[in-house]
Amino acid sequence: MTRIVTMTVNGQEHELPSPANRTLLDVLRSEGGLTGTKKGCDVGDCGACTIIMDGKPVNACLVLAVEAEGADILTIEGLQHAPDRPHLLQEKFMEHGGAQCGFCTPGIVMMAKALLDETPAPSEDEIRFALAGNICRCTGYTKIIEAVQSAAEELNKARAQ
């Protein structure tokens, strides 16, 4: 039976139809048209579908859409300030070459945002620990870590001023 699931996605209320056996990931991508959130493994191993749900990073492939009734969802599309104004993390990923094929990037950027919201000045170990559930098969992670470190530094500089 299809239900109408009401949730806030990137600050806007959405009513999305979903049967019980559909994941939040599929509904966001197909019914919501938000294809920035990627479908990699679909079993919670790769992190490409990472979104922020009620303030916490989760794998959208392991949440049923019906479980998201009333939830506040942030996806990669909600991160940028305006169409031509990327989020600081996105800028830093570009600057440092933190993406190659780019498939894992939205999930990693969302996880990095969740990390910096909680831990504004993370150590390299803390960044690696936080990103353990985001698999990148291209980069070897070094430039990704550098991008996150650089974003953290700039955020903290801005805060100090």
Binding site: G44, G47, P57, N59, L62, M111, G133, N134
Partner: peptide, 9 residues
């Protein structure tokens, strides 16, 4: 146990 994303659920 798993990743932070998994542990949040």
């Amino acid at each position: 146990l798993g990743s932070i994303q998994v542990r949040n659920r």
